[in-house]
Design a protein around this nucleic acid. Structure first.
Lengths: 150, 150
DNA sequence: AAAAAACCTTGAGGTTGTCAACTATCGATT
DNA sequence: AATCGATAGTTGACAACCTCAAGGTTTTTT
């Protein structure tokens, strides 16, 4: 049945199918970037999700990484051992520990981001008009994401 | 002003920046799908890259997965132990072993794909016109991918 | 106050990932 | 045809990842 409805799939699903290909390519680039910066994928992923000056609770990191809480303990352990992040107690809820990027962590995070910044070939070879079209549609897609969901 | 060069980045890069957000979300969905089907992420990834009726050399699997050859050995070991793939000698080059999906492997691969098939919220809530716009631009992006690059 | 839930950590056990070394095979050179 | 260098896959060692179950601390609910 998954296959029968291929012909009647929505344009959204058809767009998503193509996007999944770009995602796999993006994943490969991410692995290369992490490896070149001597980071394991999970560590690089954690860094990418941290904003300088925006402490994040451990369990929230677990959520965005899609893994167990106990997993984050080890990942943060190693990042902390390398001086890339620090754990900070959270006075308002003493069960919680916040993860904060250190200066070195910010710098390394930016380097990971830089590795990922260039758009892949497929997108770059689009006409300027198409690139703008794509960017604008994507902006509309993620536009309402901030407020409503929360 | 987070990035000085933000103002002069191309629309392609700006589109890609938004896409990276979808990449992280897609990754999470992939992890959930794999977990629900009792597959480890790497195993599910391998299945997704295999086409029924299209044998793939081990080293090619390593390339698309972005990992070492020696890594693929273990992943295929476990997939084979579960009867999802088989190793097949390749007469034309006897160093090579081909990985082939078994019927059970095809079925499980399709189930992973089904889990990933639905477009994420952000895309689905676009207007029908925008969905088509997005799909068509993406088609143009990946269009020339077959022949030129290789 | 007691019970239930949330947050983080620990430990066990299997999987992933990298590296270096090894065997077998292929391709090109001599 | 014999050899040298490169390629394909495997193995072993070792660190990291990941899930689960269990436990301690703190918060929230009853």
């Amino acid at each position: 049945m998954a296959l029968a409805r291929a012909t009647e799939s929505s344009p959204a699903d058809e767009a998503w199918e193509i996007l999944r290909g770009l995602l796999a390519a993006g994943r490969r680039r991410f692995l290369v970037a992490a490896s070149e910066l001597d980071l394991h994928p999970a560590q690089a992923g954690a860094l990418l999700h941290l904003e300088p000056a925006t402490p994040m609770p451990m369990h929230e990191l677990a959520t965005v990484l899609g893994c167990d809480n106990s997993n984050v303990t080890g990942i943060v352990d190693r990042l902390e051992a390398r001086g890339l992040v620090t754990r900070r107690p959270y006075a308002q809820d003493r069960r919680v520990k916040h993860v904060v990027l250190s200066p070195a962590g910010v710098e390394l995070r930016d380097r990971v981001r830089a590795h990922m910044a260039d758009a892949p070939e497929a997108i770059r070879r689009l006409s300027e008009a198409d690139q703008c079209l794509l960017r604008d549609v994507l902006r509309r897609a993620v536009e309402g994401d901030q407020a409503p969901a929360g």
